[in-house]
């Protein structure tokens, strides 16, 4: 089995990102939107890892990219904690998490 090239990784992560974005735009359930958001973050992380793997410095992978991924994971974990807390608070206040019904900002 041939080894995957950088293009394969980028294509895959692009697809992952597009699926995530489509989910964010199309779905009505905030939890699902949230999960799709995480998928987009994962796509970005995958790109970074792929670049890290294919960009060598002195025969070793360039670990800068991987380091950035750890940051993303950490920040995403914190963001999930805050985001889920907001969603719970929202549900308590409005008894719904359907975005069609959450239009208080309508002009």
């Amino acid at each position: 089995m041939p080894e995957a090239s950088l293009n394969d990784y980028l294509l895959f992560s692009g697809l992952l990102f597009a699926v995530g974005l489509a989910g964010v735009i199309a779905r009505r359930n905030i939890i699902v939107i949230f999960m799709c958001l995480e998928m987009m973050l994962a796509a970005a992380s995958l790109t970074l890892v792929a670049f890290s793997r294919f960009h060598t410095v002195d025969g070793l992978p360039d670990f800068d990219g991987q380091m950035l991924v750890f940051f993303i994971i950490t920040v995403a974990a914190a963001e999930v904690a805050v985001g889920l807390a907001i969603i719970v608070a929202l549900y308590r206040a409005r008894q719904t998490i359907n975005t069609d019904e959450l239009d208080a900002l309508k002009g």
């Binding site: 974005l21 964010v24 735009i25 199309a26 009505r28 939107i33 975005t99 069609d100 959450l102 239009d103 208080a104 900002l105 309508k106 002009g107």
Partner: peptide
């Protein structure tokens, strides 16, 4: 009327 719909998805679509 048309831009400030208050709909999260509409904003996300425009952002995307």
């Amino acid at each position: 009327r048309y831009i400030q719909s208050g709909n999260l998805q509409a904003y996300a679509l425009v952002l995307g």
